[in-house]
Amino acid sequence: MNTQVTLAGVTLKNPVMTASGTFGSGMEYSEFVDLNKLGAVVTKGVANVPWPGNPTPRVAEVYGGMLNAIGLQNPGIDVFLERDIPFLGQYDTKVIVNVCGRTVEDYVEVVERLGEERTAAMLEINVSCPNVKEGAIAFGQKADALYHITAEVKKHAKQPIIMKLSPNVTDIGEMARAAEAAGADALSLINTITGMKIDIHRRQFVLANRTGGMSGPAIKPIAVRMVYQAAQATKLPIIGMGGIASADDAIEFLLAGASAVSVGAMNFVDPCITEKVVKGIEEYMERYQVEDIRDLIGAVHE
């Protein structure tokens, strides 16, 4: 049985990764999960300098999911290279570094700093965080802006680049095509969906940021639909995510056209879930006598 998938020339032992921002740099979850068992670890977004993030409350529970407005708090690329990269380098898994910035120059600086870093197999460019005022989603909601930043990053990147797309757009296919035209090597989607929660007793916003990104099982059907649409619109390999809570959910994304999947908010519910998804996919393949996982990618019948 083959569970390996290849994304833009990078081969993963299986298609299961962690969604950026839900897994830190793997250190915290390494007490629960054998990182060697994962296809890849996708790290929390890192910028050129430390970012303090948003005021609290930063998280709220909603029906079947959660909202977050962390605001991309991160220690900056220097600390990331000194501390997190060597930690992840000890494991037999691929490392995908999520990169954030306020300006094109910020992104390029981080991408260049990572250029000689062999532990970083791919770079995921975050142009879809809904919780920061400058940068991030400002690049991810208009096709021409997405084209521009993709092209700029691609010029400087040594590793393959994955553009992480926002679901907060009218036509995901148009965004996928813009990234492809600008030279992206892969796509990942969906980032969180912008939401809001109001405390009716205090008549206040629950999150200090007022809005936050929604994740968790409740968003899965939207994510599956968008992955399918993006897969129809481009030839790029896609990392699908949004509410994955089981191997069954992961397989749904593969069938919709994803070549790999990421588990996000559900890490908070079950810190061991990523390994369970890996195992569950193998069980599904045995049950349906699937010899090669690649036969599942986009295999939903028309």
């Binding site: 921002g21 839900t22 897994f23 830190g24 915290e28 979850y29 007490e31 629960f32 929390k44 430390p50 970012w51 303090p52 993030g53 609290t56 930063r58 998280v59 959660m66 977050n68 962390i70 708090q73 220690p75 900056g76 600390v79 908010a265 890490n267 908070f268 810190p271």
Partner: peptide, 23 residues
């Protein structure tokens, strides 16, 4: 959210720069 230090949901402002977060 996570309870284990990964999600950065539950932070408090500190007087000095924090050793882990560098903010």
């Amino acid at each position: 959210a996570c309870g284990v230090g990964a999600c950065l949901g539950c932070v408090v402002k500190t007087k000095e720069t924090d050793r882990h977060s560098h903010v």
